[in-house]
Amino acid sequence: MQLQLRNIELESTILPREVKTISYQVRPTSRGVYAFERCHAMVQRLGLFERKFTLNEPLRLACYPSFIQMRKYQLLATTDRLVELGIKRIRKIGATLEFDHIREYVRGDEYRHLNWKATAKHKKLLVNQYQEEKSQPIYALIDTGRVMRMPFNGLTLLDYAINSTLVLANAAILKQDRAGMLTFSKTVSDHIPAEKRNNQMQLISEKLYNVTTDFEESEFGNLYAFCNKHINKRSLLMLYTNFETIDALSRQMAYLRMLAKTHIVVVVVFKNTELIDMAKEEGQRTIDVYNQIIAQKFVYEKHQVIQELHRQGIQTIYTSPENLTINAINKYLEIKARGLL
């Protein structure tokens, strides 16, 4: 899809040796690269004759994903109003802490943090001071295979995954973690190592704005081999994909289990809300009953997929596409609070 204006004419009067700029506005409807090809201009002189000029200066412009959700999260995070966005307040369970320094004991300090060796050496109570562990790697693994082409409210599942990745990466960087991403189908591409530098969000946006899906089945074996080689530190891997059937999951389960041995893997499974609504409808005609039974079968298979992932110890996000971003951030905060990384 390209930006093209074919139904309007732009007219202007230009004096001899005058330079004039004619402006118009267009609104892109999806992310990607938009090409402006050759421009045709008809110049009329004295109302008697006209001449056609063709300007051979094609232009390509990048249209980036929407930053509205990301900016909204950033604003509410700085004003401590994330509950308005649907972000849950999660009580910290245990602690994921790293050593900072040794200091003198003061009343109220936890006894388990007492440093007995330093206490014996200095003949006064000393405790270890800890701080919450930061700079933990957070990766978004985005499936660009055919399962992500499914449309929903004008966007594909891939579009929802990209929007969620931008918000999640920004949230991780705000919490002093390191954000990275990669896309995969037959092979792995668009890899950005997890970092928290100032231009990290710009790098991620540059990689994601022109990502498209293909009609091939994704190779999770290649994904595992790449992660095993390039992601060495234990990381949170947010896997954006969509298993429609238990058979599709079974073909990839071995690779997911191997990933889960060294990383925290969270698999996103999308709800098909149209099928759920169809499964609940009371059929009046025979064809309606058939459609209801088929819809119930697919809904049941989705629940089987979730149960099998849980049985294998792999965390999941079962969500409708429009709620993906909020649920992904909630899962990230939950994992941080539970100290699983």
Rank of each mutant, 00 (worst) to 15 (best):
N163H: 11
A161T: 03
I173W: 11
L157N: 11
D177S: 06
A172Y: 13
N153Y: 07
R178A: 12
L166D: 09
D159N: 15
Y139V: 03
P137Y: 04
L174Y: 13
G180D: 04
K134H: 10
T183Y: 01
P151F: 05
K123A: 08
L166S: 08
A179G: 07
F152V: 09
S164T: 15
F184C: 03
D190P: 01
Q176M: 05
L158C: 10
T144W: 04
Q176H: 09
K123M: 08
L141K: 05
Q129R: 12
I142H: 02
V127K: 02
Y160N: 11
M181D: 12
T156V: 02
F184T: 05
G145A: 02
A169N: 10
Q129M: 13
N153G: 00
A171G: 11
P151M: 04
V147A: 09
T187H: 07
I173C: 12
E133V: 14
A179R: 05
Y130I: 08
Q131F: 12
D159I: 14
M181L: 14
A169D: 11
R178W: 07
T144F: 01
N128P: 09
A179V: 05
A140G: 15
S189I: 06
M148C: 02
K124D: 00
V127N: 07
R149D: 03
Q131E: 13
N163K: 00
E133D: 13
V188K: 04
K124G: 00
T165N: 10
L155K: 15
R178N: 13
L166W: 02
P137D: 11
L141D: 07
L174C: 00
Y130V: 08
I162P: 04
L126N: 07
P151S: 13
N163C: 05
A161P: 07
G154K: 03
L174S: 10
Y160V: 14
V147Q: 01
N163P: 00
A161C: 14
L158Q: 07
T144A: 07
V167A: 04
I138H: 06
L158Y: 06
T183L: 07
D159H: 11
V188N: 02
S164Y: 08
L126P: 00
L155H: 15
V127W: 03
S189A: 15
F152E: 10
Q176F: 07
L155I: 12
R146C: 05
V188H: 00
V188E: 00
G145W: 00
Q129H: 10
L174E: 12
A179T: 04
I142W: 00
K134T: 13
P137A: 04
L168V: 06
T165V: 12
K134M: 12
T144Y: 01
M150V: 05
L157H: 09
